[in-house]
Design a protein around this nucleic acid. Sequence first.
DNA 1: TCTTAAAAAATTGTACTCAATATATTAGAC
DNA 2: GTCTAATATATTGAGTACAATTTTTTAAGA
Lengths: 226, 226
Amino acid sequence: MEASTTKLAIEQIAERITDAVMEHRLPPGIKLVEEKLAGAFGVSRTKIRQALTLLAKEGLVTLHPNRGAFVKRPSAEEARDLFATRRLVEPEIVRNVIARACEQDIARLHQHLEEEAQARAAGDRRRIIRLSGQFHMLLAALAGNAFIEKLMAELCPLTCLIIALYDAPQTPACPEDEHSQIVDAIENHDEAAAIRLMLHHLEHIESELMLDAAPKLDIHWETLYG
Amino acid sequence: MEASTTKLAIEQIAERITDAVMEHRLPPGIKLVEEKLAGAFGVSRTKIRQALTLLAKEGLVTLHPNRGAFVKRPSAEEARDLFATRRLVEPEIVRNVIARACEQDIARLHQHLEEEAQARAAGDRRRIIRLSGQFHMLLAALAGNAFIEKLMAELCPLTCLIIALYDAPQTPACPEDEHSQIVDAIENHDEAAAIRLMLHHLEHIESELMLDAAPKLDIHWETLYG
DNA sequence: TCTTAAAAAATTGTACTCAATATATTAGAC
DNA sequence: GTCTAATATATTGAGTACAATTTTTTAAGA
């Protein structure tokens, strides 16, 4: 969220904030003070306000009238609804990707897997989490349905947020090589396997959450910039 | 879009514009001039701008930089994607409604059917179109998944827009009693029938569109306020 | 020392202003 | 009359200012 030289469109501001949320640099519940953001991005509050409006519509931010914008703290029920939605939509995404992906698309998937591997090798946990989410956004983009792509572009950042809130503290980096298995199945045009792997992957992520326990109550100010 | 006495929140402004689009009072492609809207709603352009940002994110409005906001003209491909998404999501909605709807929910459905019947009896075509869309939004709301509800709250107004653009001129009011058949099946907890009816209903709507023909090119200024 | 009340500071909500850009109009040439 | 260029008008983009509200701080009383 560093200041920049070029003029940012509100979508870009929203995207930068989204990335910060996905990387757990902005924890759930934190207040997003308009003036601070305006300073950080080098724009006026007018634009920040529009970006926050956008993020609120997206569901990543909660707006409390006269009190400001806060990074959302999804409830356990919302988390369950989110995964239910993903279990409905992502098999369809897999089907469509297998049906329409060209070589270039497959190459992009491999390139993404490579980035994930690099982040894992470097032990860059934040980047791993963001890239893990973006893998699913990439798949959705390759599926060729703008509405489903947009839906996933909202659900993935929210999933990162849910992981930040409900993840067991000791959970290791991430689902390891489940992504590459899915890509393999897609390449082999093995629809049944790809869907099975995708559902297993989603269930894996959800199962590691502690949705029944109370969510992490407070913001860890000490580790916020760690 | 008449002026009002109470102060409107940007969500309410967006909702009023959405209703106007759903009722085909604002045709696809029409320009939404900020100052005009500001005057109509009795607020400053600042708020209108935020409402338009919201509607653009929703996909109901297209923003052309430095040129303004226009009611979206969905392409045939977008129309097909939209219906594909609805065919994926609405069976799940039906399943969930059957599983969780209480008597009060069923009563709301009946109440809605009654409104539709009234609009039909009164020959109020605009109201029929809007209510037809809102039936599906109501079903989605009763399904109890916030993400699917939000998705349908976007897809239904867009569907109205697509109908405005691609509907055969002579198409009669609307799908008649297909909605009430769906409600019947839901009441009987007949999941298979309800899903079948829903899919048939969606295919019925899509089949009456002329997606292969060029969309209606221009705005009918003569009938805009007719 | 803990509560409560009052004052101060910070923050949001909204209108207003002016520059940048696009659109419409007019005038001139052919 | 029609095309083109120049001017005028309309509209959007974005910052600033100020009122309304909330939060924090300070002070007083029990």
